[in-house]
Amino acid sequence: MVARQSSSRKRRKSHPRVVVIGGGTGLSTLLRGVKTYTPDITAVVTVADDGGSSGRLRKEMGILPPGDIRNCIVALAEEESLMSSLFQYRFQQGEGLKGHSIGNLLIAALTDISGDFLTAIRQASKILKIKGRVYPSTTEKVVLLAELDNNTIVEGQSRIMRSEHPIKRVFLRPREVSPVPEAVQALMEADQIIIGPGSLFTSIIPNLLIPDIAEAIGASRAQKIYVCNVMTQPGETNGYRAEDHLSKLLEHCPGLTLDIVMVNNSPIPRRLREAYALEGAVAVDFDSSRLEEMGVEVILKDVVNFSNFVRHDPLKLARVLKKLTEPERSAPCPSLGK
């Protein structure tokens, strides 16, 4: 049970205490931006991954999947140097080695040496001299399951992402899961909690299905922000608008309250729209009025980077998020335009 924060909470430090929640590419992208405006960062990361190198290590060694943890450690590295590149290096050949990254293998080895996954994360974090802390949302071995709109149940994150039917809901097995205490404490002490961006059903919601995590977010006096994805994700959020993302988030986490939803309003170049359309993805549309009716402030900003992909831009995100920590932003205000 999470105790509600005392009203005598200490005054805010010179650097805001920021907690980010999620997994996958979206989380590591966000962290690269957040570390530019505060060193006091806690990443709370999903451990439901069962594909690729992480899935193999999970199955063969019985450890928690290290891939998303590794990406967060690299993103928070003081300098993304040769050692960071080494962590991310993935073997392209070799029986038993092909597909594994050195960082995943290192975390697996440190877990084997220390006998503890959290200790392994701390040791890997020291190697890269990271700003902040990285915690899994739980150290229990959870399996993610989804109920589809045809009432079938799909087991495993990697299979859920390939579903051909819309997802009705996701849930964990076991259902009662204990969080990492340090993650709960960070949430309770945070000035700013950021959820997303990332895969809605397989990276973000699994963290919030852990009761004490969701309860800690609700009890925290932090500013709570949801960063909506820029593009829909085939197999997960086909046809979803920003309102649908928020609705599913709240549906899975009754009692969760958010202050702000951040949505990209920069047009996607035609060449990229056409390329993504071939994969079944489109830009996430939005209706500010409908979002506001759901009880949140809506911030519309250009927060993307265009290359061969459409991704959130770490520095653009950071500029907006930093402004939201300033004292005059303590009270809600009307929707902000570009």
Rank of each mutant, 00 (worst) to 15 (best):
P66R: 05
Q88E: 15
D50Q: 04
R290I: 06
L258Y: 00
C72F: 05
A214Q: 00
C253R: 01
S7C: 08
R56C: 04
G156C: 09
L105Q: 07
A48V: 15
S54V: 09
G96C: 12
L105A: 09
V143Y: 10
P314D: 13
M294F: 01
N104H: 10
Q92K: 15
G115H: 14
G96M: 11
P314K: 07
P334Y: 03
K322M: 09
Y37C: 05
I41K: 03
G62M: 11
S7P: 13
V18D: 02
G103E: 05
T152H: 12
R169P: 05
L172P: 08
L209Q: 05
S163D: 04
S6H: 09
S330Y: 11
T232A: 01
A281T: 10
R270K: 15
I127P: 02
P174K: 13
K131E: 14
P254K: 08
R271P: 03
V298W: 00
G239P: 06
L172W: 12
I102T: 12
L82G: 10
S289K: 15
G62V: 10
L324M: 15
S8W: 06
T257R: 15
G94F: 07
N265R: 14
L97I: 11
V2R: 01
D285M: 11
N229C: 06
V230D: 00
P174I: 14
V2D: 02
G96W: 09
